[in-house]
Amino acid sequence: MKKRIDFNVVQPKAYDAMDALDRYVNESSIGKLHKELIKIKASQLNGCAYCVDAHTADAQKLGESLQRIFLISAWRESGNIFTEAERLLFQITEEITLISQHGLSEATYEQAIAIFGEEKTAEIIMSVVTINSWNRIGVATQLRPLKRVQH
């Protein structure tokens, strides 16, 4: 496979702008694990293997179980494995990632405001927007997961 462009090298200003969005998300009030769950779910939907790999590893470092990581792709069918807030994060992530289908529904938006409030809902939306942007860069440039040492 032919190597594609490295945005950090070819378009450093664009990469810096994306990095600034990442810093915003990292400084938000969303819990670290919830940020990783959003990133994993969006990356699964977008088919970004590089990001799925990176963020599942990050979630594990935060103490997330393999069972829950494996079940993110089937969160609706997973019973009570995920909290109400986590299920809502997945719903928001799906609706924004697949925005051309119907957008962020009124029901999901209202539930987010009720559970998270306006400030945190805005942060969640920006978190989803940011990982979707990274996913599009990763898929367009065909980034591949890093090989990790197996134990």
Rank of each mutant, 00 (worst) to 15 (best):
E84S: 05
R68M: 08
S100V: 14
T93D: 12
E95C: 14
I96Y: 06
T97W: 12
W75C: 04
I69D: 04
E95H: 15
S78L: 10
L98N: 13
F70A: 03
I99K: 04
A85K: 12
L66S: 11
A59Q: 00
W75P: 04
E84Y: 09
E94I: 13
L66N: 10
T83Y: 05
T93V: 13
I72R: 00
Q67L: 07
N80F: 09
E95D: 14
E95R: 15
G63M: 11
S100N: 14
E77R: 12
L88D: 14
L66H: 14
K61Y: 10
E64W: 04
F82D: 02
L98G: 09
R76T: 07
T83E: 01
T97S: 13
A85F: 05
S65T: 07
K61Q: 11
T97D: 05
L62I: 03
G63V: 03
L66A: 07
R68A: 05
F90H: 08
L66M: 11
N80K: 09
E64K: 01
I96K: 08
R76F: 01
W75V: 00
A85W: 08
I81F: 12
N80R: 08
L98F: 14
F82A: 10
E86Y: 09
I81R: 13
D58F: 00
I99C: 06
R76I: 02
L66P: 06
E94R: 14
S78K: 03
F82K: 09
I72K: 04
I72W: 02
L88Y: 15
S78H: 08
T93E: 15
A59S: 02
G63H: 11
L66K: 07
F70Y: 09
I69S: 02
L98W: 09
W75K: 00
R76P: 00
E95Q: 15
L88F: 08
S73M: 04
S73Q: 06
I69P: 06
A85M: 08
L88V: 15
L66C: 04
Q60S: 06
F70I: 01
K61S: 09
F90P: 08
S65N: 04
S100C: 15
E84L: 08
I69G: 00
Q91M: 10
I92C: 06
A85Y: 06
W75A: 04
T97R: 11
E77P: 12
L88K: 11
I72P: 01
E86K: 05
K61M: 09
S100Y: 14
Q67I: 10
Q91V: 01
S78T: 00
A59Y: 06
E64M: 03
Q91D: 07
A74N: 09
E84A: 14
R68G: 04
E86L: 03
E94A: 12
T97H: 12
E77F: 06
E94S: 13
T97P: 03
S100K: 14
L88A: 10
I96F: 10
R76Y: 04
L71A: 13
A74I: 14
L88S: 09
Q91E: 10
W75M: 00
Q67S: 01
I81L: 15
Q67H: 10
L89S: 03
R87H: 13
L62D: 01
